[in-house]
C-alpha cells in the first residue's frame, strides 16, 4: 500500500527521515536506506535542512525509490521562487514522487551560507495552494498544464508552539489550502499533545506525531533552550539523568518507543514520524521496542 492508502485506510503510519549528505559520497545514506527498507510506510527526504547546502531532495527521493522506499519530498520556499518550485514539483512528479511536504524552511541565517539571499517568494500555505492547483491541472498563474500532477500533499505543525493561537491559525489555513496530512515538530509531553489532537480532530486531516530521540539530559536541555516549539518535560530529563551517561541513549530510545506505543494503543493520532538526525541506524530498534515491527 502507498503512504496515501495507508493513511486513508486508518492504519497507523510510520515515517522517518533521510538527510541527504553534503557531497557526492552517498554510501552511508544508501546503507541507512537499506536498513529502513520494508519497515517504514514512507521516508522524508529533507530539503537543505537547517539551511545547510546538501544534495537536493528530488535526487535523493529518486534514489530512495530505487532502494525500495516511498519518499516524501520535503520542499521549502527558501531557495526557489514560484517558477522554480512549480517546475521542480512537475519534475518530481514525473519521476514518480507522489508525496510532498510543504514548508517555509529555516532561514539562511541558520545555515552555512549566511550571505545567501533568502527567497520566500511564496510560503507554506501558498505552496500548498500551488500543489493543489497543479493537481487540478493549473499553474499558479492559472495556465493549463499538459498533464496534471497527482501529489499527496502535507505540511508541518508545531503542537507546542508558544504562543499556540497564531500557530493554530496557520494550521487551519494549511488545512484549507489542501494539506492532507501533518507531520509535527518533536513532541515529548503526550498529555499536552492530546490537547492539540482534540483541536486537530475537528479537521479531516491525518496527524503524524514527530519524534526526536533524546541522547542525554544535556541534549534535552539544549532542545528546551534553543529549538523553537520543543519542550522536554523535567520528568524526562530526570529519567535521562538517573540512567547515567552510558545508558542515556538507551533510555532516550525507550522513552520514544514508550510514547509511540501509547499514541498507537490509545489511537491518539494517525502515525508517527521519527527524526533520527544522524542515528538512522537506530530507527529499526526504536520501532521494535515500540512494537511496530
Amino acid at each position: 500500500m502507498s503512504f496515501r492508502e495507508i493513511l486513508n485506510s486508518g492504519k497507523f503510519a510510520v515515517t522517518a527521515e533521510v538527510g541527504p549528505p553534503k557531497g557526492t559520497d552517498i554510501k552511508e545514506m544508501i546503507h541507512h536506506m537499506e536498513l529502513l527498507k520494508g519497515k517504514l510506510d514512507a521516508v522524508n527526504v529533507t530539503d537543505n535542512q537547517s539551511a545547510v547546502m546538501r544534495i537536493c531532495s528530488i535526487a535523493v527521493c529518486k534514489i530512495a525509490m530505487e532502494h525500495g522506499l516511498e519518499p516524501i519530498l520535503q520542499m521549502t520556499c527558501r531557495d526557489r521562487n514560484r517558477i522554480g518550485l512549480q517546475s521542480d514539483l512537475l519534475g518530481a512528479n514525473i519521476l514518480g514522487i507522489k508525496n510532498v511536504l510543504c514548508m517555509t524552511g529555516d532561514h539562511v541565517s541558520a545555515g552555512d551560507h549566511k550571505g545567501a539571499k533568502p527567497v520566500y517568494d511564496i510560503e507554506s500555505v501558498q505552496l500548498l495552494n500551488a500543489v493543489d492547483g497543479l493537481n487540478k491541472g493549473k499553474d499558479m498563474s492559472g495556465n493549463d498544464l499538459k498533464g496534471a500532477t497527482d501529489f499527496f500533499q502535507g505540511a508541518v505543525v508545531t503542537p507546542e508552539a508558544n504562543p499556540i493561537e497564531p500557530q493554530l491559525m496557520k494550521f487551519e489555513k494549511k488545512v484549507r489550502a489542501g494539506a492532507n496530512f501533518f507531520q509535527t515538530q518533536a513532541i515529548y509531553d503526550i498529555e499536552k499533545f492530546k490537547e492539540f489532537m482534540k483541536h486537530a480532530r475537528k479537521f479531516p486531516v491525518k496527524i503524524l506525531a514527530g519524534f526526536v530521540v533524546l541522547k542525554s539530559a544535556g541534549m534535552a536541555n539544549f532542545l528546551n533552550n534553543n529549538v523553537p516549539g520543543i519542550r522536554v518535560p523535567q520528568t524526562l530529563i530526570d529519567e535521562l539523568k538517573a540512567a547515567g551517561k552510558e545508558k542515556a541513549l538507551d533510555t532516550g530510545m525507550n522513552i520514544t518507543a514508550r510514547h509511540i506505543k501509547q499514541l498507537r494503543d490509545e489511537k491518539i493520532c494517525d502515525g508517527v514520524h521519527i527524526m533520527a538526525i544522524g542515528m538512522e541506524d537506530k530507527v529499526p530498534m526504536i520501532m521494535e521496542k515500540a512494537g511496530l515491527i
Partner: peptide, 26 residues
Amino acid sequence: CPKGLLNGPCGGCKDGHCEISPDIKC
C-alpha cells in the same frame, strides 16, 4: 518578518520571538 510570511508564523517562533534573533519579536 525576516521571511516576509503572509499567512502566519513559521515554526521558528520561540516564546513569541524570531528564530533569527531573540531581539526580534515575531
